[in-house]
Design a protein around this nucleic acid. Structure first.
Lengths: 342, 342
DNA sequence: CTGAAAGCGCTAACAG
DNA sequence: CTGTTAGCGCTTTCAG
């Protein structure tokens, strides 16, 4: 019972360590603060003692003082699209490496970012990264004005000066058209994603404008609310009415759904009857059954840019980073029958 | 320039609101605290004024006082398996609904939980949910003893008294065996996952013991370090040497890889030549190409249990929740040729 | 039911 | 370089 020395709260504070070492608490604070004036010897002593005692500065208390929490909020929608699961994983990992922790906010289907932001202010987050969701320009500007960082990932907002990192969707779509044309396709169709996202709008614009540049006809287009596998499946069926010999899907998940529909429902083959190109290059695109030609987003580079923006002290606004894309050719667009996907 | 009233820091504190309303800061604190003694009228007035002014209590400051942050840490490994992406999504969403925020910790491939835990203590997290990763009994006990909650999701730790939520892996595996046997399969093989996880060990045990109960022979078994698509692919090839007519994979992702190998590499069909069962019931299992029979984990119920454990005040330790599983029959085990997966 | 006062654990001037 | 003194914004006794 009578545990003589201390109450059993088990967890040390800076003052405990200070008393134990016979120094002031400021000293122990400084020891953990890279650019504080403290003698190397003292710092070493403190760090070592802390390690031995198992003391670690309380981040909560620290952020109350500094008004900077070293935590960044990541706002994501559903993770059912593996691409976003990858984004989240890499982003949070890289942020960790850069010394940040990630507070995860899941947007329920109907929810919009704007309504969630006020919530975040309570957490003193240093930045919020919005992955593939939209935010209204007004709110975004309010936030950046109040000294907080907002970074869009995979979206841009033309009329607001918030930093964003994207890939070159426009060029990506053009690459798809060119590849179709080079491999002899004539009737190109497009399975669009949600109309209200910059990403999809850019892909659609790239597709259509390139087709126009080449003087090629445009077979058909289908719109899709959710960008899901099922949407891709349905889109392929709808587009089939116009007899396309190639379909560009706004993302890989939709393309996989499309391939399923082409095979199972229409009884056609890919790529012989219909060639298919997707966008993202998710791991599944490489699976033999699909072997999907796609436009690869340079995810690592994009994540790196995002982390740079988060940790950037320069306060440079209006930073819109655009990464180049690359077409990855697989069987879903090859015409030679020995390589075709059955 | 001369913005008379206040400095432009934009963000209100309890004291600001208190002064504006001519009450004490304690009052505004109480207004936001459900079980504090305050007159309903006063509370109403304060809540309304706060809403109008855009004031929200600062969570950081609050958790410094209360030593409870209303944030829970979720520790996950890779999200490349869609099942875990789903877990993360649902878990964080439900926690949000229950008033918690999720701090996400990504374990790099080599990293173990033990080394990360000390890190978490800094954040005053109310609980940590460890998803599909292992933790040593010693550390786990230390944590629970120091008043913090640790909850294992999809793992158990027999020799430690930490709460966990799992599905009935053992029975699930038995169901798979029974289903194979009932549909006339004779040479059953098992593609195991990592040996060092309770989940996989239970599945393996269930499979083998049921086979023994039935007096059936055991065709073959392959071990796999990563439980990935590629692992499943390789496992199928290795197991093929023993000519099984049915393979049970430790999870769906592996099963999908196995199906690919069976079709593309071995030139056999599913289910005619080899029937396949997976585990988890990820969305892809239902895709027509795979139409994978699988053991469904009741994810919603499991997440609900986890949230209950997090918010449970009863302090009841030694809570190991096990949810029943269910076999979902699809084409990968049907023998009738009109339904077979070509 | 309400106000005053004393912290939570840390950082940030300010002296020495 | 080091110690002292105030807070960060909120909660929580303790009086009244």
């Amino acid at each position: 019972m009578a545990n003589g020395s201390k109450d059993p709260k088990q967890i040390l504070t800076a003052r405990d360590v200070a008393q134990l070492m016979g120094v002031s608490t400021s000293m122990i604070s400084r020891a953990f603060n890279p650019d504080a004036s403290i003698s190397p010897a003292m710092r070493k002593r403190i760090i070592e003692a802390s390690a031995a005692l198992g003391y670690r500065p309380n981040v909560i208390a620290r952020s109350l003082s500094t008004r900077s929490s070293k935590i960044v909020a990541i706002i994501v929608g559903t993770l059912e699209n593996p691409f976003y699961a990858q984004v989240l994983e890499k982003l949070s990992r890289e942020l960790q490496l850069a010394g940040y922790q990630s507070l995860l906010f899941n947007l329920a289907p109907g929810q919009d970012v704007d309504s969630q932001l006020p919530f975040l202010v309570q957490y003193n987050v240093d930045a919020v990264v919005i992955v593939s969701a939209s935010i209204s320009a007004g709110i975004a500007n309010d936030w950046t004005r109040s000294g907080r960082k907002v970074i869009l990932f995979n979206r841009t907002l033309p009329d607001a000066s918030i930093p964003s990192v994207c890939c070159d969707n426009f060029t990506g779509a053009k690459l798809a058209v060119d590849h179709f044309v080079q491999t002899g396709r004539r009737r190109l169709a497009f399975a669009a994603g949600r109309r209200d996202t910059s990403t999809n709008a850019e892909r659609e614009l790239g597709f259509i404008s390139r087709l126009a540049e080449l003087g090629k006809p445009f077979a058909a287009k289908a719109d899709n609310p959710h960008c899901s596998f099922q949407d891709g499946y349905n889109a392929a069926l709808k587009l089939a009415a116009d007899k396309p010999d190639a379909i560009f899907f706004a993302n890989d998940v939709m393309a996989l759904g499309g391939i399923e529909a082409i095979r199972k429902e229409l009884g056609l083959t890919v790529p012989d009857d219909i060639a298919v190109i997707g966008f993202d290059d998710i791991p599944m695109a490489a699976w033999p059954t699909y072997s999907l030609t796609t436009i690869r987003q340079p995810l690592d580079a994009m994540v790196e840019s995002a982390v740079d923006l988060v940790s950037d002290q320069s306060g440079a606004d209006e930073l819109k980073v655009v990464h180049p894309v690359q077409l990855v050719e697989r069987a879903s667009t090859k015409a030679t029958s020995d390589e075709k996907v059955p």
